[in-house]
């Protein structure tokens, strides 16, 4: 079974339709949506760049702290090695 409503009506007068013609308004809306698209694209691009930079910084700092920690561990071990050699 269909679930649509079917109506019969008179023919639409072209003058009635003419009232709704508004090309200048359409152009304005188009310009607005173009501007909005540009802004969204800019923010998306900025967001992606920020995320990439943050990830880069996190990775670099992780590696840097890792290297630093290892060198500190080595420094702590060195005296023991020297002492054992002296004995």
């Amino acid at each position: 079974m269909g679930k649509n409503e079917i109506k019969l009506r008179r023919h639409l007068d072209p003058a009635d339709i003419l009232r709704y013609h508004n090309y200048p308004d359409l152009m304005k809306r188009h310009e607005r949506s173009k501007r909005l698209k540009r802004v969204v694209r800019f923010f998306t691009f900025s967001l992606i760049v920020t995320v990439i930079v943050l990830l880069f910084l996190i990775i670099v700092s992780y590696l840097w702290f890792g290297v630093k920690k290892r060198s500190e561990e080595l420094k702590e071990r060195k005296p023991e090695v020297i002492q054992s050699v002296k004995r």
Binding site: K3, N4, E5, K7, L8, R9, R10
Partner: peptide, 12 residues
């Protein structure tokens, strides 16, 4: 909601 089809009687 249900779709409305409003047809021109003259055309039918």
């Amino acid at each position: 909601t249900a779709k409305v089809f409003s047809l021109e009687e003259a055309r039918v």
